[in-house]
Nucleic acid binder design. Structure first.
Lengths: 335, 335
DNA sequence: CTGTTAGCGCTTTCAA
DNA sequence: TTGAAAGCGCTAACAG
């Protein structure tokens, strides 16, 4: 707010505000000569158009919102990175809202955004959220793209990773390594994401005629110590030789539980966890991870949103699925 | 943008727009009865005030900007978490901008923000940035708070961690563990942050009459492989028995370099790294970390910014310093 | 306590 | 090719 507005700029140039406005937007109606002058003066005076005024008039905000459970999460922070990268190329601004997995917070944010503050919304729903009724209303008013954590039945663009296949392959990997008793730590049980993942696990067991199956459903994963206790109990009573952790947050308590029971990883029990931790190779013992393309997903989601805003998106709203990578490390390897 | 504005709301209520506006802002001039009616109708019609109009009129945006090098970074994502948490309590919106350590990008963002889009800025400067001239101009126009990576000479609120003390103590810890040849991996060499950290290292060596000193200055840390090569060379030629890594990004290449040289950590070489990795206990071999209070710093920075916006900040602009924690783990322990 | 009116800074007809 | 004027939706001064 350097105090300089379009009127002053016009005055300085002996032109009308209308002409200056048009020149700044490179309108065909303005002579090249005038444009040059306007641009030069705008630069000289450090003129920046007032976004409120401009937005009010044009009914566009040049802003998008990202609603996610947590920023301080390897997956989501990488996704934001991708989103911001695309937004920048379009001179768009990115608003961030964290739900902390709370459905009410989520709803409150969305309600507030239905005021023209943003041109579109990218959202990964909280794990508490099971009712999509509100969302079905919202998408009539504003473009919304769901990424990673999406609703099953909603007519909007949805981007996920191959939750079923990646878990299937991870389970297969453990089977190939000789595991007979593979347990599954289930997070996000309320969401499609969580359901698809466990389906992959179950299917892989079935396809390989493995009868043993054990699903530890972690309804609320926020309490590390509680997670640790539960996993420890599982280890004691079930003595699994393989574990699949469907969310990164459970890898640490799982590791501790093994350690405290003097279980050798991976000799006694092999662990695979979903994880987008960049320094995962540092993990001990060598942990095989299912790594999601978070950055790419952010880019993809933003790109599609901009296509919609440009009215250049003509695909049907089928779910777009990106591939995760099973990163095998250290002695979990069995090739 | 549900199409409903204050005029329609007023019409519906047989009141003037002004009265409705006042009622919505809970003005003392309006009767309780009228307020009730207005609130009820606003709720019924899902009225959300148009922020552009409101901002334009009031010259406030209810939005703050956060400018940081990277979102996908343990420290910064935790800081954003803290910022967002405070902003939410104030019904403020948070815009995120990533500089990717590029000074030009940083300047471009700031220029664009000088238009009333935001009421204040929280910034952690890029490691490329050495000229604070622009910033000295900026802070005259808009409240700016510098956090973590700050300028030395600028009359604004600055929040950092105890870079000197934490590195001093870390070095001391290695000395206590019996290290004689402690090397230092220096990142952020351009910034005060980087300089303070290395000063702590040097001082600890001096205070303990240790002559050996080796600083590997990593000007550009973006290339993991390059880092790896340099550290490996250091290990071969210098054979340090202790390493302090001044930034988290160097911990992994350092670990790899040791591993490839068949060096046992911590028996042959002990490593301490700055790191805000939440799953750090999983690290192998047990890595002692200097962990910064990122979340608290975000909260603190936002809180002070709001005090300034409320014109309730009366302290002088001295640097506020938060304490980092040296988290000792596993066999690096020497107590 | 409520209404009328003007205007925030910009864009966009419409007219010249 | 440019200018005059209206108005986006809201708030605040002023009037009653």
């Amino acid at each position: 707010m350097s105090g300089i507005n379009i009127k002053k700029l016009a005055l300085e140039l002996n032109l009308s505000a209308a002409t200056v406005s048009r020149a700044l937007r490179d309108s065909y109606e303005i002579s090249t000569e005038t444009k040059q002058k306007v641009w030069a003066m705008a630069k000289k005076l450090n003129y920046e158009p007032n976004p409120s005024a401009s937005n009010l008039r044009s009914q566009k905000s040049k802003t998008i919102a990202v609603i996610i459970p947590e920023v301080a999460n390897n997956f989501f922070s990488q996704a934001i990175n991708g989103i911001e990268e695309i937004a920048r190329t379009r001179d768009y601004h990115v608003l961030i809202y964290q739900t902390h997995e709370n459905s009410e917070t989520e709803i409150a944010f969305i309600q507030r955004l239905l005021s023209g503050r943003v041109d579109g919304i990218l959202i990964s729903i909280s794990k508490e959220t099971d009712d999509n009724q509100l969302f079905k209303e919202i998408i009539k008013d504003i473009p919304v793209i769901f990424f990673d954590r999406v609703f099953k039945d909603i007519d909007a663009v949805k981007i996920t990773t191959d939750d079923y296949e990646s878990t299937y392959n991870a389970t297969l990997h453990l089977i190939d390594c000789g595991c007979k008793k593979i347990a599954y730590l289930m997070g996000l049980s309320n969401l499609e994401t969580g359901k698809k993942r466990i389906d992959g696990y179950t299917a892989a067991l079935n396809d390989n005629d493995i009868a043993y199956k054990n699903e530890l459903i972690m309804a609320d994963c926020t309490d590390d110590d509680e997670n640790y206790q539960q996993i420890k109990k599982l280890l004691i009573t079930e003595k699994p030789d393989g574990i699949i952790s469907s969310i990164e947050e459970l890898a640490l308590p799982c590791y501790y539980a093994c350690k405290d029971l003097n279980l050798n990883i991976p000799a006694d029990v092999k662990i695979i966890s979903f994880s987008n931790l960049k320094t995962a190779p540092l993990l001990n013992p060598s942990l095989t991870t299912i790594t999601q393309p978070a950055f790419e997903m952010g880019k993809e989601a933003a790109t599609i949103l901009f296509k919609i805003l440009d009215k250049k998106y003509f695909e049907s709203n089928e779910t777009l699925i990106l591939k995760s990578t099973l990163i095998k490390r250290g002695s979990t390897r069995c090739e």
